[in-house]
Design a protein around this nucleic acid. Structure first.
Lengths: 172, 172
DNA sequence: TCCGATGGTTCAATGAACGAACCTAGGAGT
DNA sequence: ACTCCTAGGTTCGTTCATTGAACCATCGGA
């Protein structure tokens, strides 16, 4: 196709990554998946995104090997989208870009991150200054000074918790 | 505006970064700037991008503090776009995403990178395994196994050279 | 029988991207 | 004097993507 999704004639890895991840909303979907969001309706509440677009993005990420769609109960049929290993490895990309944004664009972050084992804040690379590389499951997120959304999914994300730990919104 | 550039209601640093960097072509413009591309026509040749879109992206990146527009000769008036310090600090983002793409999507990279001082290949974080963090000006790029574009700007980028070193296309 | 939750699809309107054509200012060639 | 060429854009009609509202399907519970 001549418009929108591909970068015809580009030779580099970056262009291939952007064909999958470079569309509007896509990287925010991945970020929320890292934060533990798994269900269609939870992504929708967190992102305020048209359902048609969310459906498209989840489908593309699934086809691209970043997410995996799984039925977690048979009746009524309910689905969740889990990060694959490839998806989890996007954590350094998401974190590095967030840190850049905080440094150069500004704004207060609503969430902060530290190495759960030793308590150190992370370097901009997402490594721990004491222990070196940290698997995302060993990163603890906790509330920062920035503004927070008030929807139930965001509220459930406001207590300190590990990356990838499933979000369970308080029903009601 | 309700469509396209903003992520209204998003609270995080990542969404602010994506308002500036998340549009089609934008990150590829930054990547080429890191590779030493500075002039409008050189970006255009490398990227095969409509001039109107390139003009928009260069303008936005300039307004956003990632690039700086400079007149490099008075007559005839000619301009170049240089990365600011903030722009240079996008190198880890670009590199980390490229490495992810190579690992998980595949394809041969047309360019490889090493620490110029010691010759070591870079870690996925863009750090040197021997020396730690490497300023982009100390990163040497050299041809890899992947396909290469045949335009004069790409050809001028194919000899080993430092990041940020201005590209001088062979005229003709 | 109706209601609500979940996980979507359809569709008209709007906004962005595309690419071809055009524009401007200054040399350079003849 | 006239024309061509280069650099750095702008304009504009067509095509594609995003939006938001409406609709749909399935199941369980009151």
């Amino acid at each position: 196709m001549a418009l929108g999704k591909d970068y015809v004639g580009q030779d580099c890895s970056l262009s291939r990554a952007l064909e999958l991840l470079g569309e509007r909303w896509t990287l925010l979907v991945v970020q929320n998946a890292l934060y533990g969001v798994r269900r269609f309706s939870d992504f929708q509440v967190r992102l305020d995104i048209p359902k048609a677009v969310l459906s498209d993005r989840l489908g593309r990420l699934t086809a691209g090997g970043v997410l995996e769609k799984r039925q977690y109960q048979p009746s009524p049929p309910r689905y969740e989208y889990l990060l694959t290993d490839a998806g989890v490895e996007l954590w350094p990309v998401v974190y590095t870009l967030s840190v850049w944004s905080h440094r150069h664009i500004g704004g207060e972050p609503p969430r902060l991150f530290r190495h759960a084992e030793c308590g150190s804040g992370l370097l901009p690379t997402s490594d721990c200054p004491e222990c070196g590389p940290v698997p995302p499951g060993d990163v603890e997120m906790y509330p920062g000074p920035g503004p927070k959304r008030s929807d139930p999914v965001s509220q459930a994300m406001n207590r300190p918790r590990r990356l990838l730990e499933p979000v369970v919104p308080l029903s009601g």
